[in-house]
Design a protein around this nucleic acid. Structure first.
Lengths: 220, 220
DNA sequence: GGATGTGAAGTATTTCACAGCC
DNA sequence: GGCTGTGAAATACTTCACATCC
């Protein structure tokens, strides 16, 4: 732990991680409702769309404040705004993509990040043959430029799509450079130092977590 | 529930879903250890690689039997074998891919499914222009053929990579055809009937679940 | 009347801690 | 001596149920 002055930490009351993990879902549903010009929604209605109990939604929200009106429900617009603020989605996060092979290119070409608060601003690859190539409107930079560009462009999130055997070293490099959130596409679970968040996109693991339930009866 | 004859159900003792979700991770680590010719491993060592407490690993495994040797640890080889059996990974699962746009093609081209127990055996798309095209060694079939092919090829898992607005109807169609596990790539949470499993691959949600922790201090 | 917000109750999951075995 | 397997304790999370307010 860091040296402990008797100052209070920025004191956010302790919110369970599972709760945080559900908030983006709420944000998404609320965005849809907003597009559909729905003004007000109850925890009941939200719960149906999300397969979650209304009590859970109310409890989750209660960690952050009192956003509803008794007897009516929640204002879609203002609840959405509050949640985006809580999650830090009201301005853009600059994101670096490391590894620009087939998968990396697909990620860069995916149009879904930008509308939701993320801006891919840099791409890196270790292969000298592709340095300088453009993918979408990103120019591929050498790994040597990573540290500088991360600092200069205030990048605190990286998407890693390099071969499994390179992933740990890339993750180490990124965390050294001050990146504090990583989305990893390789089929491994990299180690990260405390204070750094990581999420793994791992379709094989996802599939394997379902086969257990299929194999009870034996259809193949 | 189905009509209740007084027969016992196949009685698997109730294993928590979180436990099942961890088993594929164990399988993966054990596979690596096997490749590295490691014979025996302790819960301590496994825990370090997985960022999990040794007690949790032992408890997880204890739901299924006694696989270790006191004083030594677990035989990598035989624990791996047992876990693959528990998860139903000892033979191949036939998988259909629905939606063969850019993302679907990337999924089909990904070489990582087959080594881990899944065989992509059919691809479907609603766009008449692509029917009959080949991707890898799969020929794209029309949606109308789905029901027949699912039955004939004993497909019980599907990967869905269609536009968000089509996803729910595709999921409904698949479950009607008897598919019981779905891996969804669209940024929505489809509803599925009881008994059907679904996992969502959703990079935006994953990113948004991390920004909360970044925005405490305000680096962008 | 109808929906929120929330302590209290109920479950689920993780961790402890130690007896038992190799 | 070292490590498993596991009840029991501790913690985390979800749901209940109701007072409260619009």
């Amino acid at each position: 732990m860091a040296s402990s002055l008797p100052t209070q930490p920025p004191h956010r009351p302790e919110v369970p991680e599972v709760v945080i993990a559900r908030l983006p879902q709420y944000v998404r549903i609320l965005s849809r409702l907003l597009e559909d010009h729905v003004d007000v929604v109850s925890s009941q209605q939200l719960g149906e769309k999300l397969q979650v109990t209304p009590a859970q939604i109310r409890k989750d929200l209660s960690y952050f404040g009192r956003f509803g009106k008794q007897g009516r429900g929640y204002s879609v617009n203002s609840l959405l705004e509050r949640l985006r603020q809580i999650l830090g989605l009201n301005s853009y996060w600059n994101v670096a993509v490391v590894g620009v092979g087939r998968l990396g290119r697909a990620i860069i070409s995916y149009p879904g990040f930008t509308p939701d608060g993320f801006r891919l601003v840099a791409a890196f690859d270790a292969n000298p043959a592709v340095i300088g190539d453009s993918v979408g409107d990103l120019k591929i930079s050498p790994m040597d430029d990573l540290k500088d560009m991360v600092a200069r462009q205030q990048i605190s999130i990286a998407i890693v799509a390099v071969p499994a055997e390179k992933t740990q070293e890339v993750v180490d490099l990124l965390t050294d450079c001050g990146v504090r959130a990583i989305l990893n596409y390789a089929p491994i679970t990299p180690q990260v130092p405390g204070g750094v968040r990581i999420r793994n996109i791992d379709p094989v693991i996802s599939l394997q977590s379902m086969t257990y339930y299929l194999s009870g009866s034996d259809n193949r």
